[in-house]
Design a protein around this nucleic acid. Structure first.
Lengths: 338, 338
DNA sequence: TTGAAAGCGCTAACAC
DNA sequence: GTGTTAGCGCTTTCAA
C-alpha cells in the first residue's frame, strides 16, 4: 500500500493534506483565490501541481449546480450550413470554457424535445436551437425549467426566446429584387422542405409579400446537391420556361448549376441562377454564384456569446440581427430585351 | 412553505418518501428494476412520474463514475467529410444513450491534447479521434488515464489504439490504377495538407509505392472548393500538361471540376478528373465524378459502436477495416491513342 | 484568513 | 426484497 500510488486520482482532500490546510481552504484556492493569503495559496497550488490534481467535474457540478456544458440542437450536420454553424459555436464556447454537446433533430420537433430533455438531464446549462418553430412540449420544457435558450437562424424580437439571426424574409426579397431588377419575369423558386422549417417558410413568405409583377413557380427539394439536381431535372422535363432560378439555399444553387450544365443550358446566358446564404465555396463555382450573404459563422459565434453571457450573468441577451448583403457574381445577368 | 412547491426539482429522497420506501429501493428501481418486487416497483414508478423526477446526472456520475458522455475530436466541421462523420457518431451514440461532446482540433496536435484533456476533465468516458498521428503528450495522456480511444479514418491493426477506417494507401492506389488503366501517363495529384495529416500521407505513399510507369506531379491545397480552384488555376497557369487530375478528396475534385470548366477545359474529353471518398453529391456533379468510395458515415457508426462496446464491456474492440470501392462515372475516360 | 462540519443527490455494501 | 448506512469529491455556511 504505497501512499503515492494508492489512489488513481488525487482529490481535494489529498491536496489539502499535502498543503497542510483544510479542504475548505483548498477549495477556496480553486474558486475564490483572492480570499486566501498569498502564502497558503502558493502552498496549495504547489500541492495541486505535484499531485496533478484535477477537480472532479461531477462533484463540482453536484455542489455548484454548474456543469459547464451546453447543448446545440441542429437539424443535421450533413449540410454545410449547420456544420459551419456548429464549428463556430464550438470555437466560441471553448473560449468560455464551455463544452458543447451536439444533438441532431432531423427537423423533427418530436426528436427535438426528446433530445432537449436528454440535454437537460445530463445537466446542460443552456441550449442553442434553430428557428422559432418548436413543439408545444419543447416550449413547455423551456418555460418550466427556465433554461437559457437561444433561437438562431432568424431574427424575431417578439419571440419568447432571444434570437440571433437574420431577417429571412428580407434576405429572400433582396434576392428576388436583384432578379427582378435584371428584368426576370418568370422565375422558378427552388426551396428546401417547408414543413417544420420556419426559416424556409419565412423566405417564401417574403417572396410572396413582395407582390411584384413576376411569375414565381415554387419547387421543393431536399437541401442537398442531389435534391437540387433531381428537382431541376424535373423542372426542365416539365418544359416550363424560366429565365431565372432562385435557390433559397446555396447548396441548392450549386446542385442547380450542375444540373443545368448537364442539360447543356448555359448560365447565365440562357438562365440566371441565384443563391441565398453565400457559402465560402460560392465564389468558386462555375460560374461564380450570385447570392445573398448570410453570416452563418458569425451567427454561430454570436449565438454562443449570447448564451455564454446569459449563463454567466443570468441576464437574457438582446436579440441580434445579422445583416444580409447582396453579392452579385457571374451566375445572373439581365434578360435580353426581346 | 408549501411542501409541493418548495423544491425546484424532486430528488430520490422525495420519491422514496412519497412511495413509502427507502432511497435504496428507489435507487434500485432506477438501476436494477428486477431486484425489486413488482408491487413496490410500481409504487416507486408512480412517485417518479408524479414528481416528474429526473435523476441528477452529476450525482449519478459521482457515485457510479459514469457520465455517459464521450468526446469526438475532429479536425474541423467545415468539411463535409467530418460533418457527416460526426453526424453518424451522434446518431449511433444516441442509441446507446451516450452524449457526444464535439471538439475541433484544426489538425493541430497541440490543440488536440488540450481539448482531449478538457474532455477528460469533464468526465468523458471515451474518445474518438482522427488518424494515428498524435502528439506524445496525447499518447501519454491516453496511456496514463487508460481511457478508451478509437482512432478513425485509417486501418492500422498494429497501432496501440483500435482503429476503425479504411486502407488509405490501397484506396489511393485503386484510384491511380483506374487512371493508369485508362492510359493516363501524366497525372496531376491534388492533395490536402500533408503536414500533421497521416491519412493524406498514407494516400500519397500509396501512390508512390505503386511505382507504375506514370509521371505524378503533386500539388497541395486546402481541402475546400476554394483551395482546389486556386491550386488548379495555378497548375493550368504553369502550363504543365496533364491528361488526368487525381484528387485525393472529393471536395478537391469538385473544386477542380469548377475551375476546369471556368478555364474552358472539357472533362473528361480534355482532362479526366478522379476523386477519392465519394460524397453523396459526387454522383450529381457535372460530369458525375469517378471516385473511390470510402464509407464515411458507416465509419462513424462503427467507431461509435466500437467505443460504446468498449465502455460497456471494458473490452477493447477489434480494429475494423472498411472496404473501398471504385465507382466509375463520367469524369474519367481513356486517353485517345496519339 | 482559516477550519469544522453539513450537506449536494445518488450508489453500493451490508445487514436483515 | 428491502432498509440502513457510509461514502463519492466537492462547495458552502458558520465559527473561530
Amino acid at each position: 500500500m504505497d501512499l503515492t500510488s494508492r489512489k488513481k486520482r488525487a482529490n481535494l482532500r489529498d491536496v489539502a493534506r499535502k498543503a497542510g490546510v483544510s479542504v475548505a481552504t483548498a477549495s477556496r484556492v480553486l474558486n475564490m483565490p483572492t480570499a486566501v493569503s498569498a502564502k497558503t495559496r502558493d502552498r496549495v497550488q504547489s500541492a495541486i501541481d505535484e499531485l496533478r490534481f484535477v477537480p472532479s467535474a461531477a462533484a463540482r457540478a453536484i455542489n455548484s449546480g454548474r456543469t459547464r456544458v451546453i447543448g446545440a440542437l441542429v437539424p443535421t450536420l450533413d449540410n454545410a450550413i449547420f456544420a459551419r454553424f456548429l464549428d463556430a459555436i464550438e470555437n466560441e464556447m471553448a473560449q468560455h470554457a464551455l463544452s458543447v454537446v451536439v444533438a441532431t433533430t432531423n427537423n423533427d420537433p418530436e426528436i427535438e424535445v426528446e433530445k432537449a430533455r436528454n440535454l437537460l438531464d445530463i445537466g446542460a446549462e443552456g441550449l442553442i436551437v434553430s428557428g422559432v418553430a418548436h413543439s408545444p412540449a419543447f416550449e413547455a420544457l423551456v418555460q418550466k425549467t427556465r433554461i437559457p435558450v437561444i433561437a438562431t437562424s432568424c431574427y424575431e424580437p417578439a419571440y419568447a426566446l432571444p434570437t440571433v439571426g437574420y431577417d429571412n424574409r428580407a434576405a429572400a426579397q433582396m434576392a428576388l429584387r436583384h432578379l427582378v431588377d435584371l428584368k426576370h419575369r418568370r422565375i422558378a423558386v427552388l426551396h428546401g422542405p417547408a414543413f417544420n422549417n420556419d426559416r424556409t417558410r419565412a423566405r417564401l413568405a417574403g417572396l410572396q409579400a413582395l407582390d411584384l409583377d413576376v411569375q414565381l413557380d415554387l419547387y421543393e427539394a431536399d437541401i442537398t446537391i442531389a435534391g437540387a439536381c433531381q428537382a431541376v431535372a424535373k423542372i426542365l422535363e416539365s418544359g416550363a420556361r424560366h429565365s431565372a432560378l432562385l435557390c433559397l439555399s446555396d447548396v441548392l444553387a450549386m446542385g442547380a448549376l450542375f444540373e443545368l450544365q448537364r442539360s447543356g443550358l448555359s448560365v447565365p446566358d440562357e438562365v440566371s441562377v441565384m443563391g441565398l446564404e453565400d457559402l465560402p465555396s460560392s465564389s468558386y463555382t462555375a460560374p461564380a454564384l450570385t447570392s445573398v450573404r448570410l453570416q452563418v459563422s458569425e451567427m454561430g459565434s454570436r449565438a454562443a456569446k449570447a448564451l455564454a453571457s446569459w449563463i454567466e450573468t443570468a441576464e437574457p441577451p438582446e436579440p441580434v440581427l445579422l445583416a444580409a448583403e447582396l453579392i452579385p457574381r457571374q451566375s445572373t445577368k439581365a434578360v435580353e430585351p426581346a
